[in-house]
């Protein structure tokens, strides 16, 4: 209750001043420089995981500390920030990170994809096509796509260095043998620029094709694992597959129950204990925009 009151007070203020006693965007300048050096290397070697000295952040690991450190190193006063968690602007993680940057930088925040210059995301790529002027920052829990297959970091580094990705092919092959199809529905590994195999963070595989030749710069930060990586704009990103078992995205039989969209990623919402359910857009901003375009009224959350 107290936090809610503070939040409404803050949003009521005319000018937004950054929090006193903290550096702009929370991190100190030498930490930013260290992360910035890492980001430049990450962009130069697309898909390669650059180690960095991840800092303690004022929130626990798993809440997007990697993405926050990347955003903090990149963001400037003129930027407009959007934060999403599973496509939604109004979930706990998204709200707390957006509030964190609003108070430590004073930058403008938005929920509209088209207005944002930096979009920090947890587990989704917005439905609205991204532009060259935008930077997409991913929060990554496990940056190493080979980790479930090979627990040793020393080994996986060697495998990446030698471009020895047979293990991953075997894993996909076993999936097909066991399930008749490639059974990874999220965090579906990709090959970047024909070289490194990379974890796209736990985005649904529905979003994988959006990474290919994307006009926006994509930066990835893993706070617990202390890794940075990147996909520059207009870079080939190929989801792993076999010729006879090509990569496919998820499909739904019904449209979004709120806006009627047919080509968006849908979340299943359980309505009661008798098995009633509905499917709605996971991207809350795209869904609201769709409804506004069709002249529908804002759905009440009460």
């Amino acid at each position: 209750m107290l936090t809610l009151q503070q939040d409404s007070l803050r949003s009521g203020e005319k000018e937004k001043m950054p929090l006193e006693g903290y550096n702009f965007a929370y991190l100190d300048e030498s930490t930013k420089r260290m992360i910035r050096r890492g980001l430049l290397k990450a962009v130069a070697v697309p898909g390669y995981q650059v180690p960095f000295a991840g800092r303690e952040m004022p929130m626990p690991c798993g809440w997007g500390t990697g993405g926050i450190q990347v955003t903090a190193s990149v963001i400037g006063e003129e930027d407009v920030l959007k934060v999403i968690d599973q496509g939604s602007d109004d979930t706990t993680n998204a709200v707390s990170i957006r509030r964190f940057f609003a108070s430590t930088t004073g930058v403008k925040t938005t929920t509209h994809t088209a207005e944002a210059t930096i979009i920090q995301t947890r587990h989704r790529i917005p439905e609205h096509p991204l532009t060259e002027q935008q930077i997409l920052v991913y929060q990554v829990p496990l940056p190493e796509p080979l980790r479930w297959l090979e627990p040793s970091e020393k080994e996986t580094r060697t495998l990446h260095a030698l471009e020895e990705y047979g293990l991953m092919n075997v894993k996909i092959y076993e999936d097909i043998m066991r399930h008749g199809a490639i059974a990874m529905s999220f965090d579906y590994p990709v090959r970047v620029n024909g070289r490194y195999i990379m974890s796209p963070s736990p985005i649904p595989r529905f979003d994988n094709p959006k990474m290919h030749q994307c006009p926006a710069l994509q930066l990835f930060g893993a706070g617990r694992e202390k890794r940075l990586y990147a996909i520059p704009p207009y870079t080939d990103v190929k989801s792993l597959d076999f010729e006879d078992y090509p990569f496919e995205v998820q499909h739904w039989d019904e449209p979004c129950a709120l806006c009627g969209a047919r080509h968006t990623y849908l979340d299943e919402v359980v309505l009661d204990d008798t098995g009633k359910r509905m499917f709605v857009c996971s991207d809350s901003d795209a869904c609201a925009e769709n409804r506004a375009r069709q002249g529908m009224t804002e759905v009440s959350h009460d």
Partner: peptide
């Protein structure tokens, strides 16, 4: 203004390297 200007310069470098 070291904080603001180094951020702007970094964004120039980041953009230069990513394009």
């Amino acid at each position: 203004n070291p904080v603001r200007q180094s951020q702007q310069a970094f964004r120039s470098l980041l953009q230069a390297l990513s394009r």
